Simulated assay, not measured.
Amino acid sequence: MCQFEIMRGLLNLVPIPGDYVPEGIYRSAFQPKVFINRGGLMWKAVRERFRRFHVDLNVTQSQIDDGVTKAINVGKALERAYTGTASDTPPVFFVGSWGKGTQLRPSADIDIMANFDWSVYQRFEQRANNKQSQLLQEIRESLAGPYPQTEIRADGQVVVIGFNTITVELVPVFRYPNGQFLMPDSNNGGRWKIVDPFAQIALVERVDAKANGNLRALTKMVKLWNREKRTSLKSFVLELLVAEFMDGYVWATRDYFWYDYFVRDFFQFLRAKSGTYLTIPGTGEAYYVGTDWATRVDTAIENALRACYWEYHDYDVTAGQEWQKIFGPRIPIYTA
């Protein structure tokens, strides 16, 4: 092996008694990394471990086809109900994780927005009380005919269509000339809310391209941690925070060989966001990310430090066990 073939960096290496994490083992992602030649492989399991992990998190083509077909058919049913005819390209589009390409397998739901004519908005504006709830209920009723065996309900900001294989969550919207949308929120008496899903999608697209596809991969891994630990962090919050992290991360373009550092350094970044506000792209809305999840991140950081330490020493099984404390059984222990 060429001495400078792998540039990984100097860990503060001391023996670990029991579960002790060496003081100072965590280094800022922005410190220089110096190669150390131990006369053989180092971090030998990292690339294959995280490659397999990533592949396992991706939705299959059949799952994509199923979700897309169901979403388009819902759009056709709505188009027929409100215009009398249905086209092959109904006015629906994917948002959320499906719109950003960050959906995690298995995907429990698919978020879509349906663009309505402003005449529908004007019709409901003439009504009293919770106009937003009434709109959602009308949409629910319009879908009950085409889907008589499917549970359909209005819930806050969405109409939920509970198919057997995946749930479709539909948000009715009205498009502004600037590309933003007005959507209903029936909570707390009802209100209209301006949203900009394409701004979030554009951010993810830009940073993922800049990071050689690593943004979406890391996002899926972090989402699995979030699912395993059942934190209060919303999916879109994690997507935006991973984008912010990767946009400024010095190693963002590297391959799977660096993913142990990706995970370790992102959790440190995430911990610093506790109690802060996130600015939503497009609308500029300040969203409070909360604090109740911070202790789970502290635990993830400790586990990641141990895992990185053992990866360096090529104790790949021990490292895999530490990763499973973060991600559960879907990240492999054995890579040989």
Rank of each mutant, 00 (worst) to 15 (best):
K70D: 03
T295L: 04
T165A: 12
G320W: 02
R52V: 14
G101Y: 04
R123T: 13
L233Y: 06
L203W: 07
Y315H: 10
V21N: 09
A211E: 02
T165I: 05
F257A: 15
L270D: 09
T60L: 10
W192F: 11
H313P: 00
L218M: 04
Q157K: 15
T279Y: 06
V195W: 00
V289G: 08
N187V: 00
K76I: 02
A154V: 01
Y315Q: 12
N129M: 06
R105Q: 13
I139T: 01
L182R: 11
P32I: 10
G40C: 06
I194L: 13
D196L: 02
E239Y: 02
E79L: 05
T165F: 04
T291L: 03
F94T: 01
S28R: 09
R8G: 05
S235Q: 09
R105C: 03
R230T: 15
R38G: 08
S28Y: 10
F269P: 04
I280P: 05
G101K: 04
P90S: 10
S87H: 00
M7A: 05
M1F: 08
E322T: 00
N130R: 07
S62D: 14
Q61H: 09
I326G: 11
R123N: 09
G9C: 00
K44N: 09
L11N: 10
A319M: 01
A319G: 08
R49N: 01
T89P: 00
T295I: 12
T279R: 15
R330Y: 10
G18R: 03
I16N: 13
M42N: 05
N187P: 00
E48G: 01
D88A: 12
R47D: 11
R175F: 02
R38V: 06
F257D: 15
R153T: 13
A286E: 14
F93I: 00
R127P: 00
E151H: 10
V55T: 14
P106G: 11
Y147E: 13
T150Q: 07
Y256C: 04
L13S: 10
R264P: 00
V207D: 02
D265P: 02
Y121K: 14
F266G: 11
A77L: 05
Y277D: 11
L57W: 04
Y20T: 15
K210E: 12
N226V: 10
G84S: 05
Y309S: 06
M113F: 06
D185L: 03
V207R: 08
C308H: 03
E138F: 04
R140H: 08
V168Y: 04
R38H: 08
V289M: 06
Q134A: 14
T299K: 10
A154D: 08
V204E: 12
T167K: 06
R330M: 11
N164H: 07
